[in-house]
Amino acid sequence: MSAFDFTCNEDTSIFIFKGELDTLACMGFEEEVLTLVKTHKGKVAFDLQSVNYISSSFIRLCGSAATLVGSQNISLINLNKEIKKNLTKIGLASVLNIK
């Protein structure tokens, strides 16, 4: 069973994650996510509505995805307040197009 749900709308690939995205969890799905990103190209959106914790490994995954599709084509959506605050604090809010 995959740790995330994947849907593809027109030119946007949407990855819906759940739970805590700690280093171990990220190691489990990193390769699969990057393969899908490579395959579908276009814009990428990481939906974090059901996520309550992200580790630096997930931020690295976002960076890798941004490298593949271009930073202007990646976005993080539906973040909770705490995660948004942490990403803003480390200056990644604009880089990862937090919405």
Binding site: G63, K89, I90, G91
Partner: peptide, 28 residues
């Protein structure tokens, strides 16, 4: 992009320093 450093004054007040919102090294 690192956690702020805590500055504890003599009177016990604690301040957070380094809220620069700058991205980690190696990212861009």
């Amino acid at each position: 992009g690192h956690d702020n450093v805590l500055l504890i004054k003599v009177d016990g007040t604690i301040h957070e320093i380094g809220e620069h919102q700058k991205i980690p090294i190696g990212f861009l």
